[in-house]
Design a protein around this nucleic acid. Structure first.
Length: 555
RNA sequence: UGCCUGAUGGUGUAAAGGUAGCACAGCAGUUUUUGGUACUGUUAGUCUUGGUUCGAAUCCAGGUCGGGUAACCA
């Protein structure tokens, strides 16, 4: 089989540059988060693209915090972002902050003023908005547009010195108020903000705007390929204009389509709302699409990387089916997760032909997908727990589990035959009775009995209790933001089901936070960070594929 | 309405003028001591109208539809 992986458009650009020796064979990218929120699944794509490209082409990737707006940014976010990137498995070449360049950026602004390409404007925000025009009507020059170079230089210096209050003046690039691209209509490049900055403290009271910081920072770091999402396309013209006028290193911007995933929302505003209004338990709630949420949910870094790698990079709008993400986490967990048994909704199973104090030791494989995964010892005795779902009073034809007169195998143990059962006055099954076949022991079955079904179970005398949290998608519709009404109207009321008293294998009590488990026939689980020795909590990462459920649904 | 983008099965993504392929999902089956996994088979696609060409998903022109864009946010 020839593994001929085609290149995405960014790889094509880079390979073309490499061929033409555009940057002396250098590939240098950067990941530029703003430290004002937590990273989510969409950022993970950008991280995979930027760090991935650098890796593939033997280049470098910087981490640069785009911290030009002191009123929204915090050091706490810086830490969470770094944690998440490292967890995803990437290493940055340098850790930079746009605020490191405030001095240089200030000088760049002065140069622009000296070239007659920037001016100080006293207009209010409203006045500027009016003068700016609309996409279909051209803008009008500000009355301050023709101030002399000397006056502009003087005023800008005074802005920096703190002579004016917030909003009193801005520095604008002098481009063209009639430009088709709204961003070229004399964009604001510096504004006054008497705010404490998380890194520079009170050293500055003027801060550069994104457009006067990002491209210049790329240039300072000699970034060869500045890769961002499609909504920045209109900014590229300004990006290039500034680099040209400033005569600095010609970084270039390339845009790809952000990756959307069905049943998830990723806008910072909406995520913040979910947290603030307590629809979820925090930024790392396992239902959140944040990296920290996915981590707590039990997703692995590799599964997220593989997911984005297979999704690919292109320029068209897209919504990726959440099934694909779930496929990749299942694929990985199937190979690494230790198999254990747990009973979430128990009914008692009593073995008729076993004495009360009898106990049989059995060996159970930890993961038969992997050699050397080892075995553990489990016990089998008279009183067992089985899943309520695994017994039916009047089972349909293709039901391969337990029912009156039916036989099944208890995983890793014996074949049993149901003799009778009891119900309470509400018609709820309370106890199921069965005979076991001693000669049908798992691995050394000489009984000759064939059964189609295998169910999981727990020895009631040794099982431990735990809390199990079953997570489902947070929303009931693929794209809650495109529906009528508020996106929160579409929150899935069943996104979290808490089972307070589930039964688990004793071996599970010593689980670590990093361990991944498959609860046989139920799904993949991991221990929650809020677990204590007395109270263990397991989170369901994702269920197993369930073709029986599908069958039932079809009727 | 201006400018910028984009359009390939249900979803995502390939095919650089020459057999429309891959993955997920779906469906059918084989295997199975997890109704899991693995394996096999299978359904289904080039937005539209013209043009260029022996030949067009690809090139050209018009149209249609989607997305972005009018913060002292990034």
């Amino acid at each position: 089989m020839s593994e001929e992986k085609s290149l995405n458009f960014l790889e094509e650009i880079i390979e073309e540059d490499l061929k033409n020796n555009t940057h002396q064979g250098r590939v240098h990218t950067r990941f530029p988060p703003e430290p004002n929120g937590y990273l989510h699944i969409g950022h993970a794509k950008s991280i995979c693209v930027n760090f991935g490209l650098a890796q593939k082409y033997n280049g470098k990737c910087n981490l640069r915090f785009d911290d030009t707006n002191p009123s929204t940014e915090e050091t706490a976010y810086v830490e969470s972002i770094k944690t998440d990137i490292e967890w995803l498995g990437f290493k940055w070449d340098h850790e930079y902050y746009t605020s490191d360049y405030f001095g240089t950026l200030y000088q760049y602004a002065q140069q622009l003023i000296l070239k007659g390409l920037a001016y100080v404007d006293d207009s209010t925000a409203e006045e500027m908005a009016t003068l700016k025009g609309t996409p279909t009507t051209v803008g009008v020059n500000s009355p301050y547009r023709n101030r002399s170079i000397e006056e502009n230089a003087q005023l800008f210096e005074e802005m920096r010195a703190g002579k004016y209050p917030d909003g009193a003046k801005v520095l604008r690039a002098k481009i063209d108020m009639k430009h088709d691209n709204m961003l070229m209509r004399d964009p604001v490049i510096y504004r006054i903000k008497h705010a404490h900055h998380h890194r520079t403290g009170d050293a500055w009271c003027i801060y550069p705007m994104y457009d006067f910081a990002h491209g210049q920072s790329d240039s300072i770091e000699e970034i060869t390929h500045s890769i961002c999402t499609m909504e920045f396309i209109p900014h590229r013209e300004l990006y290039d204009w500034l680099i040209e006028k400033l005569e600095i290193f010609p970084s270039h911007q390339y845009e790809f389509a952000r990756g959307n995933v069905s049943y998830m929302v990723t806008s910072k505003r909406r995520l913040l709302q979910l947290v603030k209004e307590n629809h979820v338990a925090g930024w790392d709630d396992p239902r959140m699409p944040t990296i920290s949420g996915l981590r707590r949910r039990g997703y692995t870094p590799a599964s997220i990387r593989t997911f984005w790698e297979h999704v690919g990079v292109a320029k068209r709008d897209n919504t990726i089916d959440i099934n694909l993400l779930e496929f990749y986490i299942r694929e990985e967990l199937n190979k690494v997760a230790l198999r254990r048994m747990a009973v979430l909704d128990p009914i008692k199973l009593i073995i008729n032909n076993l004495d009360e104090h009898e106990s049989i030791s059995l060996q159970a494989e930890n993961n038969h997908e992997v050699e050397n995964a080892g075995e553990r010892t489990i016990s089998f005795s008279k009183n067992l727990w089985i899943e309520r779902d695994d017994f039916m009073e009047n089972p349909p034809n293709k039901y391969f589990r337990l029912g009156p007169g039916l036989k099944v195998r208890l995983k890793h143990a014996f074949i049993i035959a149901c003799t009778h059962f009891t119900k309470d006055q509400n018609g709820q099954i309370t106890e199921v009775y069965a005979d076991y076949y001693p000669e049908s022991k798992s691995g050394q079955d000489t009984s000759g009995i064939k059964v189609k079904g295998v169910i999981h179970w727990l020895d009631a005398s040794s099982a431990k209790q735990a809390e199990v949290r079953l997570y489902d998608r947070l929303f009931t519709v693929e794209d809650p933001t495109s529906e009528t009404g508020d996106f929160k109207d579409y929150i899935n009321p069943n996104s979290l089901t808490i089972i307070q008293n589930a039964w688990i294998e004793p071996a599970l009590t010593s689980a670590s936070l990093e361990d991944k488990f498959q609860f046989l026939r139920l799904g993949y689980f991991c221990k929650d960070r809020n677990s204590t020795n007395e109270h263990i909590i397991f989170n369901r990462t994702v269920g197993l594929k369930d073709s029986w459920a599908k069958e039932v649904k079809k009727g």
